[in-house]
Design a protein around this nucleic acid. Structure first.
Length: 442
RNA sequence: GUGGACGUAGCUCAGUCGGUAGAGCGCAGGAUUGUGGAUCCUGUGGUCGUGGGUUCGAUCCCCAUCGUCCACCCCA
């Protein structure tokens, strides 16, 4: 056992029994995003390290101490992506997508070297949305409504929406100065980390959970009071849109985000059901990022969802399962076993949507039926010496008490077509009628 | 990165005041020599995470290491 190699820390296998939940989330997400006209984009997992330094921010924890960075053979510093926005922006600039508005989405693994715990892994998956070229509050509202629709479709209750506006850069700068002055005057009551942040990223101090620091924060000036007319009405428009749509939210003036590039609207969907890692989805506006990465000034909004956390929520809401196989083909006897794979192939030819599992490995009727039952199949197809001789197949319902029937190939195809909702044209079914034996067709 | 709990069969766990381990579930076979799911019977199962130390002897004590979980931190 000492030589057994385990998966690396914080990186997990998703086993077959769990995959159904992933499918559910991925399928619903794709459907919903497609229904709003969003197009999928796929970008590399690996990027030049500078891309993340310049987008996420050099003084953020992600860039400072959580990136998987290494030197390529030619000496370039590369990093596994810790999030998806930077790559999206890079690709949009690189391929000239920004000449017109773009509504994009992506999915895939992200990598951060954090201490693993529930809902936080070193390799984790996100689905994200990025919209380029639309400056108004209408699109902010749209992407939040997308997320609300997703929760409805997935049956997630109990998520709460928190909302804030970070203002525009000049507003934030003015506020930052005032905040630093205020916090500095109470420096003796702040925790060490907050004091360090005072000089690097003072807005993050608002996020602190430190009890004494929180008391100081409670009386701190708020960013909301420093918004100009334009940002204020932008934010109010988003809020009233949510009111009209009947999506409840909570204003949280201390909601800042860990990434430097956000401005104006920011939001988070939070659950209390997953312990300390309660943020399931978060995003906001980042109007300055495209230009910062070398593109023409282009407004942008987006969000990302943590799929592992969503999978956990789905487990709390009930179990997802993939559709089991329609039928399981049991074949006993040398002749029947030899014939079975080809019978199965002809059924699959006739019914492309049929989910049919063929028994392999021989064994008694008893053991094969046990397998058939455990496969979850609705029907067992039975091919033994007797059936072979008479040119028919037995079909036995495994989920109800009605008896076993005997059908020739044509009738079998028609019967299974009823399960798969495959439709047969007349020519095909004529061609398919007759004996079950492949050899007789040769 | 900091602090803490834990790691025994495929799974959930019990246990040994240090003398190389048990249950339930699962899995396989049988009771029905061509038919699953219920019941009963039988069987299968672990160098007790890994490496080292103390000891006549370690799964149990000590150290290290890897991993899981919780909180901080961070964030999706």
């Amino acid at each position: 056992m000492s030589r057994f190699i385990q998966a690396i820390r914080g990186m997990h296998d998703i086993l077959p029994e769990a995959v159904a939940s992933w499918h559910r989330i991925e399928d619903v997400s794709r459907q919903v995003l497609t229904s709003y006209g969003y197009a999928e984009i796929r970008t590399p997992i690996l990027e030049v390290t500078d891309l993340f330094k310049r987008s996420i921010g050099e003084v953020t924890d992600i860039v400072e101490k959580e990136m998987y960075s290494f030197e390529d053979r030619n000496g370039d510093s590369l990093s596994l992506r810790p999030e998806g926005t930077a790559s999206c922006v890079r690709a949009a600039i690189e391929h000239g997508l920004l000449v017109q508005p773009q509504r994009l989405w992506y999915r895939g693994p992200m990598f951060r070297h954090e201490r693993p715990q529930r809902g936080r892994y070193r390799q984790f998956n996100q689905i994200g949305v990025e919209v380029f070229g639309l400056p108004g509050p209408d699109i902010d509202l749209e992407i939040i409504l997308i997320t609300a629709r997703l929760w409805r479709r997935l049956g997630f209750a109990g998520l709460r929406l928190e909302l804030n506006s970070l203002g525009d850069p000049d507003e934030r700068q003015a506020y930052r100065n005032e905040l630093v002055a205020y916090l500095s005057s109470h420096g003796d009551r702040l925790d060490a980390e907050s004091i360090r942040r005072l000089h690097t990223n003072p807005l993050r101090v608002l996020d602190s959970k430190h009890p004494e620091t929180q008391k100081v924060i409670a009386d701190a000036p708020t960013l909301m009071d420093h918004l100009g007319e334009s940002t204020r009405s932008h934010f109010q428009s988003v809020c009233s849109g949510l009111d009209q749509a009947g999506v409840p939210y909570r204003l949280n003036p201390r909601l800042v985000r860990g990434l430097d590039y956000y401005n104006r609207t920011v939001f988070e969907w939070i659950t209390d059901d997953l312990g300390a890692q309660g943020t399931v989805c978060a995003g906001g506006r980042y109007d300055g990022l495209v230009e910062q990465l070398g593109g023409r000034p282009t407004p942008a909004v987006g969000f990302a969802m943590g799929l592992e956390r969503m999978v956990e929520l789905l487990a709390l809401a009930g179990h997802a399962s993939d559709a089991p196989v329609h039928a399981y083909l049991v074949a006993v006897g040398e002749q029947a076993q030899a014939e079975a794979p080809f019978l199965a192939e002809r059924l699959r030819d006739a019914l492309p949507r049929l989910r049919l599992m063929t028994h392999c490995g021989g064994g008694s009727f008893k053991s094969q039926f046990k397998r058939a039952d455990r496969s979850g199949a609705s029907y067992a197809l039975v091919l033994g010496e007797a059936e072979l001789e008479r040119g028919i197949v037995g079909i036995k319902p495994l989920r109800e008490q009605t008896g076993q029937q005997e059908l020739d190939f044509g009738d079998l195809v028609s019967f299974l077509a009823g399960l798969t909702k495959d439709t047969l044209d007349r020519g095909a079914s004529a061609q398919l009628s007759g004996s079950i034996s492949t050899r007789r067709l040769q």
